[in-house]
Design a protein around this nucleic acid. Structure first.
Lengths: 251, 251
DNA sequence: AATCGACAAATTGCATACATATGGCGGCTT
DNA sequence: AAGCCGCCATATGTATGCAATTTGTCGATT
């Protein structure tokens, strides 16, 4: 009711508003959210606020406090890196299982088409990149990869593990404001997209897994670059708004 | 409030009763659960029933239906195998990261102690095994393994992925009613416990990962054994009560 | 037989009031 | 100064009634 039908319920409103606030970093990690205050603020009764907070717990943005109530989860730099590592492991598993078990014609056709369209995001010049198109198709690529082996269990787990902003495959893609060396990584990433496809087609499970893992490591490099260059994190990378400011790496 | 303090709330009661029913296979997969009927049945109001169902969704036993309400999730044989595969991958990752990153003294001491105590479950004769002790310590071993790298993200994800009964490391351990060939696998498993420890100590990440994955595959062998021998599943393996009866493998 | 519309029943969404539990603060004692 | 206790304010747990939505049934029409 809240989402599937698009019905405009109070719970849905509260859920979307709270999610947006959390994702924008409006609540420091560890903040306790109080039903009554939020109900007033959002102008609904406690019931939809509770429901919304319960759902945000499912989404991984809140956790339940020990004597009832909800806390905003806190994340640090290590969580970001581990989330990226985990995504690599899970997507690597999807690639391996796809290679080992085979892929249906329909899914392979879809996957190939996405890779082909990703190619069209690159023009003649090294700076000639359709960033928006790439970001959209990159998201599609990763969803399709997760679905390739036809395992609902794995697909579900990948969806869960990549739900938080900084865990998403699209979290650290460069855009037009960023340095060109940073942007050139897109071309390398697209090459990896191709290689993963090839490894799967050739039934090379270990290779597919290794490639997909390395592919996810690009996100780690991008994160490290951002922190190493003291870039204003919240400004440059919305995905990191959730991450505590005191948790930057020291090197 | 529901769990941390042990307070005896209606929500807690409803949660435990519904969980137990679901885990015992009382509701076929896909069954819709109705608030009003359950509230009457459990003799509480709708509010704690809703809360309990929301939590069971977090636990992975229910899913939200499209226009509100909740459905009991259904699982088939492939889900069992994929859950085992996923556990192997995640525990393998824990082993690898432990080897790569190192382990604190406290955690390593704890881990060694568990392995040592697992050894004491085996007596002089091949049939002389303390099954209950083994099962208890096996669970501890796997929890400790998940915690070794000191990554809250990974530990949390492993906990989630192993939450369902058939995904648990202890799901398919043999007990005293089962065949001796089946039981002998415990000795092999314990050898693997040792080898994983050794690989971590030696900083052999790839080896640790491969061993932990293979270790998880024992569960797959056990499942396949159960099905291949037409054993009454619900009777022999409570962990499989959740799995649909029409989804047995055909080979 | 299939489809559509109307209506009733059932279910979920929600608000509100009351009950219960928790946490913080102040005062007192050691 | 530290610890303990009591009190009160606040937050959560819960029940219940009403509103809104969804589902199912039945009859009419093609």
């Amino acid at each position: 009711m809240v989402e599937a039908t698009g019905a405009n319920t109070h719970t849905k409103r509260a859920l979307e508003e709270l999610r947006q606030r959390i994702l924008s970093g409006a609540f420091p990690g560890g903040t306790r959210l109080f039903e009554v205050a939020l109900a007033e603020d959002l102008q609904v009764s406690r019931t939809p606020v509770r429901e919304a907070m319960s759902r945000l717990t499912e989404e991984g943005l809140l956790e339940r406090a020990r004597n009832g109530g909800f806390l905003v989860r806190s994340f640090d730099f290590a969580d970001v890196l581990d989330a990226i590592e985990l995504r690599g492991v899970l997507e690597g598993t999807a690639a391996r299982l796809a290679a080992e078990r085979g892929v249906t014609e329909a899914r392979m056709k879809d996957f190939r088409e996405i890779v082909r369209r990703l190619d069209t995001c690159f023009g003649a010049g090294p700076e000639d990149v359709d960033f928006d198109g790439y970001a959209e198709l990159n998201g599609q690529y990763h969803l399709a990869l997760a679905a390739l082996p036809g395992s609902a269990t794995l697909e579900r787990e990948i969806a869960r593990a990549t739900r938080l902003p900084f865990a998403s495959p699209s979290a650290f893609l460069p855009d037009r404001r960023q340095l060109s060396a940073f942007r050139r990584s897109l071309g390398l990433a697209q090459d990896q997209h191709h290689q993963i496809l090839q490894a799967i087609v050739r039934r090379e499970g270990a290779r597919a897994e290794a490639l997909a893992r390395e592919h996810a490591c690009a996100a780690r490099r991008n994160v490290e670059y951002i922190f190493a260059n003291d870039i204003d994190v919240a400004q440059a990378v919305p995905a990191l708004a959730l991450v505590g400011q005191g948790s930057r790496p020291e090197d």
